[in-house]
């Protein structure tokens, strides 16, 4: 009886307690990959601080300069062959650690890499043209259109409306009958 209970106990213990060491030589409970080279570039472990929301928000505003057209955060979490974005990420972290505010980090990047470091150009100076020309063009064209239509309408009104009233139609009853028949034949 006791021997059977102890046997069960031992079995349960085996089932529930994980082995202290992985069968493969790894670090602690983490196993190693059979073919690490196939799993892409080796990564460094990231900590929660560097993935904090405010770091992410800053990086979303800064362009990666690898030619990918993405921002730093998206590039470094998408294009894993890019070597620029992880480096830029380190720079953001370093600037934050120096106690700079979010805006100051962005300004520092502009100073360091030029205006193209920003995902969207600052709305000032010539860049305003980039932001405003399309809207202005549409508004101008719309206003012109409205003006032309308005003028044309008043011209039409001045010309006497040119409204053909029903009674000024001269049609014989036969013609009207033909029209009615043609209309009946038109499917609707």
């Amino acid at each position: 009886m006791t021997s059977r209970r102890s046997f069960l106990r031992a079995g349960l213990a085996l089932a529930f307690v994980p082995p202290a060491q992985d069968s493969l030589a790894g670090r602690g409970a983490v196993g190693t990959l059979h073919n690490p080279a196939a799993a892409g570039r080796p990564r460094a472990s990231t900590n929660p601080e560097e993935n904090a929301a405010e770091i992410q928000a800053i990086e979303l505003k800064l362009a990666c300069n690898c030619g990918c057209t993405l921002d730093i955060f998206t590039c470094r979490t998408t294009d894993f062959s890019c070597t620029y974005s992880p480096k830029l990420h380190r720079e953001v972290l370093a600037l934050r650690n120096d106690g700079l505010s979010a805006q100051e980090v962005i300004d520092a990047f502009v100073e360091r890499y030029g205006e193209k470091a920003l995902m969207a150009p600052k709305p000032q100076g010539f860049n305003l043209a980039g932001y405003l020309v399309p809207g202005a063009a549409i508004v101008t064209a719309g206003a012109t259109l409205a003006l032309v239509i308005g003028r044309r309408r008043s011209a039409v009104a001045a010309a006497g409306g040119a409204a053909p009233e029903g009674d000024h139609l001269e049609a014989s009853p036969e013609e009207l009958e033909r029209l009615r028949r043609a209309l009946r034949e038109t499917d609707d």
Binding site: A163, P164, G166, H168, L169
Partner: peptide, 15 residues
Amino acid sequence: AFLKGKYTGAALEAL
């Protein structure tokens, strides 16, 4: 009424 007059005229002319 306006449009009816206009298009009836056009249709008659076509006929």
